[in-house]
Design a binder for these strands. Structure first.
Lengths: 187, 187
DNA sequence: CGTCACATTGATGCCTCTCAAAGCTTGTGG
DNA sequence: CCACAAGCTTTGAGAGGCATCAATGTGACG
């Protein structure tokens, strides 16, 4: 099922499909066709830089919406390539625009956008911390160690080795507890 | 005049005032009082890190809205300090919520939120680049060198020295041009 | 002119990345 | 039921790069 607030939209107008690895959802310059919600797929938004090199703009980890800004543009501003196979919804622009006639949808949609901005500000704040130990500590306090250490390390831009070493330091400092292998929690 | 889309709101319900440098609009933990739109003031959203150091979350360049997420929160999640004197609007939460009954406002407001999310995703991606040279290059390509090098270095979590050295390296590699002191542009 | 913020460059040390390897856990297939 | 693979966890050694401290130059502004 499509996550909130998009479940408030008429499901018949949403296009669900399974995208295999390597699928190009859209290319830079293509006429916009709506925004997307990935249920299980990973998608990379990328652009070709001045030197012809690949510039990653954003990597979509499911479930997440992306290309929201395309609603307000004539053409896509980057490429979107499927990294790992999974299910994706496409929401045509007209469906979103119609949705805004419903104040409830407008508020619900704005809420998740606001929350995203909040979350990104938190991540940016954490990534601004130079020390690996303090960065990991801030991330754990912020509740980012909700899945695996590998996942955390990627989200805060540290190698997994540095993250494990920071966790061990925090445990030895008594700032974290390590009840079992791979499990950490605040005292 | 207040910029779009907030000019669509009833102007009598908006609170305009002039804030002098150093004014604290709100502090982390204060009960929310609505969101803000800066007309001519520069405002820094900041938070005090674990070690007591200043962490810039976002620098508001006028005219721009900020603290949008406070509409859905009980309390502010950071401090807002005026950097340069100027006029600011405060928009009470109820005014925004009423605004969502107007589809035109909902769409216009969602547009700027989408842009913000887009910008944050890009920043996070750039901050994930380990090499200072490549990180600075990606930031310049993304158009983040719009004000000063000092400003850029803070936004991408590098010291200004490292940023200057990276810029010099990029110039020597021919990937950037340095027409005059402190000015850089793509070839 | 004096102050202040930005711009630039140098030297040094530490910290994180990198490469490498081994232990642990889970799941899968024979 | 066992063996093997694959992914996560943990630890080590070395090297390179960025932070740090320090200093000077430059431009804007009152």
């Amino acid at each position: 099922m499509i996550p909130a607030p998009f479940d408030m939209l008429p499901s018949k107008r949403l296009k669900q499909f399974t995208a295999v690895k390597g699928t190009v959802l859209f290319r830079e310059g293509d006429p916009t066709d709506g925004m997307f919600v990935s249920l299980t797929a990973a998608v990379r938004m990328e652009r070709i830089g001045p030197d012809g090199e690949l510039v990653t703009i954003h990597t979509v980890e499911s479930p997440q919406s992306f290309a929201e800004a395309s609603i307000f543009a004539d053409r896509y501003h980057c490429d979107a390539v499927v990294l790992t196979e999974g299910d994706i919804f496409r929401i045509p622009t007209s469906v979103i625009l119609d949705g805004f006639t419903d104040p409830e949808f407008s508020i619900a949609y704005n809420r998740i956008m606001s929350r995203q901005v909040q979350a990104y500000r938190q991540i940016v704040e954490i990534m601004s911390i130079r020390s690996a130990v303090e960065r990991v500590y801030a991330a754990v306090v912020a509740g980012l160690l909700d899945t695996s250490v590998m996942n955390l390390s990627q989200r805060i831009a540290l190698t997994h080795e540095a993250t494990y070493r920071a966790l061990r330091t925090l445990v030895s400092q008594g700032r974290l507890e390590n009840p079992s292998r791979g499990k950490y929690k605040l005292p």
